[in-house]
């Protein structure tokens, strides 16, 4: 029935898209070889502060984002009147697709000073004995970068969660009410119903957060240290690559940066695939 000739033209487009993925991997691997040759695997030990910073910032951001995205999704679906629900959904999607550089710029010059004099000062003064808050507040820090990152990935996670949450059939609500339980139980049961998809959505959001470069670069301070205190400055892998790239002229320097990019790529890919599998597996 279908003449196959027509589809060959369109097939070419698909081949282009699929090959992109492999081209990216291959180019990174080939470009990193000189660094691995010269330094061996000890290369990553010397980059430890960057790896540490990436993990700390992403985990803190995703912890904040988990609470906020689930909370706001529930609120938008369950409590917002039908008429203005569309407005909130559109606002949420706008926030998700907003240029991230603006978030970083604003975070550095507006949110940073505000949080510094209020929240961070409070944390340092009263909870300073915990290693987590043991350095005095500075204009840039892990915590500021995590908060800005959380602001950026929450709308994205929110829209994914909202998508699944709103598709739960109303018969579930009705059944729970019929048992004599209240809204609290309705929400609790519905959330546990889609728990796997929520985990998938958060994993996808985490994958996005790993690669966020400029917003984190502006708000983390770019000091090559690994500090246990969230209020201290630090560095993450994307920020390190972006900063060092301008002054990396020799083959070896460039190759070291590319090897770091390869690590980032592999971590990101793992989280993207894991997130997809979790999100799309219907219970």
């Amino acid at each position: 029935m279908r003449s196959n000739k027509v589809y060959y033209y369109y097939f070419a487009g698909c081949i282009a898209v699929s090959s992109l993925l492999f081209l990216i991997i291959i180019s990174l691997v080939i470009a990193s070889i000189p660094a691995f040759d010269f330094y061996g695997v000890g290369l990553f030990a010397s980059y430890f502060p960057a790896i540490y910073g990436t993990i700390v910032v992403s985990i803190t951001a995703i912890l904040i984002a988990t609470v906020l995205s689930i909370g706001s999704s529930i609120f938008i679906v369950e409590y917002v009147p039908q008429r203005i629900k569309g407005f909130f959904i559109n606002l949420n999607d706008l926030m998700a697709s907003f240029p991230t550089i603006v978030y970083g710029f604003w975070g550095l010059y507006e949110l940073g000073p505000f949080l510094n004099s209020t929240l961070f000062q409070f944390l340092y003064t009263y909870l300073g004995f915990i290693p987590l808050f043991s350095t005095p507040p500075t204009a840039v820090s892990y915590l500021l970068a995590s908060i800005v990152l959380a602001i950026m990935i929450t709308p994205f996670a929110s829209s994914l969660i909202r998508e699944v949450y709103s598709k739960i059939p109303e018969s579930m609500d009705e059944g729970i009410y019929a048992l004599g339980l209240g809204k609290y139980h309705v929400i609790k049961i519905k959330i546990s119903y889609i728990a796997k998809s929520i985990l998938g959505a958060l994993t996808l959001a985490y994958g996005r957060g790993l690669g966020e470069t400029v917003a984190v670069d502006l708000t983390i301070g770019n000091s090559f240290i690994a500090s246990p205190s969230l209020l201290s400055t630090g560095i993450t892998i994307p920020a390190l690559i972006a900063n060092q790239f301008g002054s990396a002229f020799t083959e070896l320097e460039l190759s070291s940066l590319f090897s770091l990019a390869l690590v980032l790529f592999i971590i990101g890919l793992v989280f993207i695939i894991a997130g997809k599998l979790l999100f799309y597996k219907r219970q």
Binding site: L21, L28, L204, L210, G211, A261, G268, I272, K276
Partner: peptide
């Protein structure tokens, strides 16, 4: 869809 969520810095580097 996987390409969709790639860190854009990786794409720039490649």
């Amino acid at each position: 869809e996987s390409l969709l969520e790639f860190p854009t810095i990786i794409i720039g580097i490649s």
